[in-house]
Computed example of a mutant assay.
Amino acid sequence: MEGEHDAVRRNVLVWRVGGVGDTVLLIPVLRALRRHFPRSHIVAVGNLEPLSLAVPPADEVRSAEEALWATLFSRPSDELRDYLKNFELAVVYTEDEVLIRNLEGIVGRVVCWPPLPGDETHEAEHLLEALKMLGIKEEDPTPRIEAYEDVELEGTVLAVHPGSGSPEKNWPPDRFAELILWAEELGISPLLICGPADEVAVEAVVDALGRRVPVAKGLPLRKVAGLLARCSAFVGNDSGIAHIAAAVGTPTVVIFGPTEPKVWGPRGENVQVIRASTGRTEDVHLLEVREVLKLVLPA
């Protein structure tokens, strides 16, 4: 059966709209499709910048915000129909009935699957479940990012990401400041990671320190991934950046709050999740984070 698939070249569309972490967790799906259909042209549609981290295994990425897709949610335009007729297969993670119905009327075969699990199945495994409808069983749900800019860093560097998509997910800034001071005493250089929504959290850490430290700010995600790949370790909150750190293979320590790590924990070769029994980040103790970091930092 696999040999038959290898001989067929087909265009495959994958639709998944989500944040940075959601998109990183889609990479195993794209990798499985690439392995099963090695001669195919795979187009992933969703949040464009994080999707740039998925080339390869995808061949092409497109933003779901493009004007081309607007009529997919109503009556498909001739332009959209002409484009979609090029695809023999679409794997779509949505429950939008209009979108699904329109695709089914144009694309050869459509596999639709809910974007979120209904239980405590990890999101990466949940997304892969859709491929069983194609006879594809992928046993490795670990995302691996191959597409990033190579960056040079000197010495032992600890990447610190004090932000997230929600203040309630953030560990207190004074704890991050104390952690940075501890790392510096060990000869480890801190590097604060600041995304578009992280400025307040980063400045709070700087204020708690009482001085400036190096900050990587406003960088495209491919460069952020390159920086994280060169760091000796990463520590941060439950965020898309933590998923990137894990997926480039950097030893990663993630502090979780209200979100369930069984579903949303980053997957990687060396990932440690810390969560208080209360589900509140402020109840995660500094000593615990330090002890876990000792386990992942190079000797």
Rank of each mutant, 00 (worst) to 15 (best):
T121Y: 03
V61P: 01
R144V: 12
R75H: 13
V12L: 11
S166A: 15
W69A: 06
F37A: 03
T71P: 08
E123M: 08
G210D: 09
F87N: 05
P162I: 01
I136Q: 03
S63N: 11
E2Y: 06
G155S: 11
G249P: 03
R62H: 08
I136A: 02
S239I: 03
A216R: 10
E60V: 02
L99M: 14
V289T: 13
T121N: 10
R212T: 08
V292T: 15
S277P: 00
E65C: 02
W264L: 01
V284S: 10
I244C: 04
P114W: 07
A58Q: 01
R62P: 07
V263H: 03
V206N: 00
F176Q: 04
R275N: 09
F87I: 08
I42C: 01
E129Q: 14
G19M: 04
R280H: 12
G105H: 06
L80S: 09
V45A: 08
S74L: 08
L228M: 10
D238A: 03
A130N: 08
K262L: 11
V235A: 06
D150V: 13
L181P: 00
V205I: 06
P162V: 02
V98D: 07
P173Q: 11
I42F: 01
T142Q: 04
L181F: 02
P162D: 04
R81E: 15
A233W: 02
I188L: 11
D283M: 12
E139F: 01
V61I: 11
L295C: 09
L103A: 09
A233F: 04
E139P: 00
K132E: 15
E185K: 15
P220K: 10
G118S: 14
L297M: 13
V224G: 00
K262Q: 08
V254W: 01
R222Q: 13
R212D: 15
L68S: 06
E60G: 03
L191G: 03
E120A: 13
P214H: 10
L25W: 00
K132A: 07
S277V: 14
G279F: 05
L221S: 04
P261N: 07
V248I: 09
R230Q: 15
E149F: 03
V43L: 13
G3F: 06
E269S: 14
T252D: 05
V202H: 02
E282F: 12
V273N: 00
L228F: 09
R31L: 00
V200T: 13
E152M: 11
L128N: 01
R222S: 09
E138L: 02
E146Y: 07
V55P: 05
K223N: 04
V160W: 00
V24Y: 02
T121R: 14
L103I: 12
V205A: 01
P258L: 08
P298I: 12
P167N: 12
V111K: 07
A70R: 15
G187M: 07
V263T: 14
L128R: 04
G18E: 04
L295Y: 02
E149R: 14
D283K: 09
P190V: 05
E282N: 11
L191S: 04
V284W: 08
A242N: 04
S63K: 07
L25T: 06
F234T: 02
P115T: 05
E2N: 14
L131M: 09
K294W: 07
E291G: 02
E129H: 11
